[in-house]
Design a protein around this nucleic acid. Structure first.
Lengths: 158, 158
DNA sequence: TTGAATTCATTCAATATTCAACTTAATTTG
DNA sequence: CAAATTAAGTTGAATATTGAATGAATTCAA
């Protein structure tokens, strides 16, 4: 039950749970991505729309948006360029910090969000939420929140 | 509580749980990927090594491997080419079906696996398993297994 | 207050992924 | 059994992502 250098292997139950979590997380992303395809959006596009939609004035600084969506600045920069070409967002200068830029939701972006969100939520229900019992929901949150907290911290200590 | 087209939004608790799950799944992948970097492996590399290590004769058909690791045949093909160049696997013809190929773990691939696995397992413990209480572990499995089952099915019905 | 370090964001080149087209082999069917 | 269909896998071009380098504005510190 110990590896040669002293690390402890996973028990059968631990391994099963770990693999289930992994599988769910992969298949779910895959499925939700597919449910967004008919609307011409990737999951990444959608997440950015969500963030901007919930932000004050429908705008966020590039850095904040990158942090919120867990992507590198470089990746976000490309991503926003694409979404800009698609008419969903635009860049706007920041007066208080002239290095900075805002990504701003366009009217079309906001309309798109309002149109797509119900379908996305329905998919989240169908493939996840509605498959959990009330206790399932509750215990999931209870189990995962500490993990999330730990990982948020670990992310900083890069 | 209803969207215009009749879909039901998520309750606060549902939303919280959903977002926590999403966050954990993203940050965890990110973290494990980072823990593998010092060994010169991506998570994708590692998963393929795991699959081959557990397979009979350390070999699998390309299609099966693609299915097991949830990637397209094309992606796997490129991936295996890279791993072949890195000396971790090799391709071998399949006699019974001459269209087919096996991806086979090389000695070096197997040595790599034995060397890296303990560190990976330790990371899985540190960032996930050891943060769950015994009930946490159990209820997680209980909650997620039906979701996994559902999604496995949905995947087929593409 | 000036020079050094940091932050914001982009760009370019190297990698990786996707998608459609293709080749070859196996299977089906009329 | 011949033609059509399906399956296994690869390829190449288009697209996306990564990581290092860059430029420009801000902050820090002596």
């Amino acid at each position: 039950m110990e590896t040669e250098n002293g690390a402890r292997w996973l028990s059968d139950e631990e391994q099963r749970t770990w693999r289930t979590h992994l599988e769910v997380s992969r298949l779910l992303t895959y499925q939700l991505e597919r449910d967004l395809q008919p609307f011409g959006l990737t999951y990444n596009d959608y997440e950015i729309l969500v963030n901007l939609s919930e932000a004050e004035d429908h705008q966020m600084r590039m850095s904040d948006l990158a942090r919120a969506t867990l992507q590198s600045k470089s990746r976000l920069s490309h991503q926003i360029t694409r979404m800009e070409n698609a008419g969903l967002v635009r860049r706007e200068n920041c007066e208080s910090d002239r290095r900075g830029l805002f990504a701003v939701l366009t009217d079309y972006g906001w309309e798109t969000m309002k149109r797509v969100a119900p379908h996305h939520v329905a998919a989240v229900r169908e493939h996840f939420i509605d498959l959990l019992s009330p206790q399932g929901l509750e215990s999931l949150q209870a189990a995962l929140e500490p993990v999330a907290k730990h990982l948020r911290g670990a992310r900083g200590r890069a």
